[in-house]
């Protein structure tokens, strides 16, 4: 029975989300996850991490901590993303983009959370003792056909 973990600490640099998702990609490759699923989950993690790295902390935040914990079993992939930055629930606080607007009227931005919601089976948020916690869950069965 498969039971694999990957725990990462993420810094505040502009290229930190990329470093983290490339570690995830390697993890996914090692465990032979389907490519389509790996891409979508990677994009979701990237969007959420980019939000946290860009907006969760003041310039002079005392001790910013961002962690990502991945857990893979035979039937599901889970991620827990935690940070001790300002409260932010992307499921509620990020305005949904209006996809029917023209290029001229579309807001620049707002798409990251939209893509994340579309590409991950379940996404939950909670605020606990000064920490933002996001949980991502992806059952593996539903994506078996994506294997290429």
């Amino acid at each position: 029975m498969l039971d694999a973990n990957l725990d990462l600490e993420i810094g505040l640099g502009r290229d930190e989300p990329r470093k983290a998702v490339e570690r995830f990609e390697q993890f996914a490759l090692e465990h032979e996850l389907p490519m389509g699923l790996t891409f979508k989950f990677q994009l979701a993690l990237d969007e959420l991490l980019t939000n946290v790295v860009s907006y969760a902390f003041e310039q002079d935040a005392a001790e910013p901590v961002i962690t990502l914990a991945l857990h893979l079993t035979d039937d599901r992939l889970e991620a827990r993303l935690e940070d001790n930055g300002r409260p932010f629930n992307p499921l509620r606080d990020a305005p949904a983009p209006d996809l029917d607007l023209s290029a001229e009227d579309r807001r620049v931005g707002g798409l990251g959370i939209h893509l994340t919601k579309a590409f991950v089976h379940a996404l939950n948020y909670e605020r606990v003792d000064g920490w933002n916690r996001l949980y991502l869950v992806q059952p593996l069965g539903a994506h078996r056909e994506d294997q290429t």
């Binding site: 891409f39 994009l43 620049v108 931005g109 798409l111 990251g112 893509l115």
Partner: peptide
């Protein structure tokens, strides 16, 4: 092989 919303913003501009 990869584009996130940050890249889409650039395309929109």
């Amino acid at each position: 092989n990869y584009i996130s919303s940050a890249g889409l913003r650039v395309l929109l501009i």
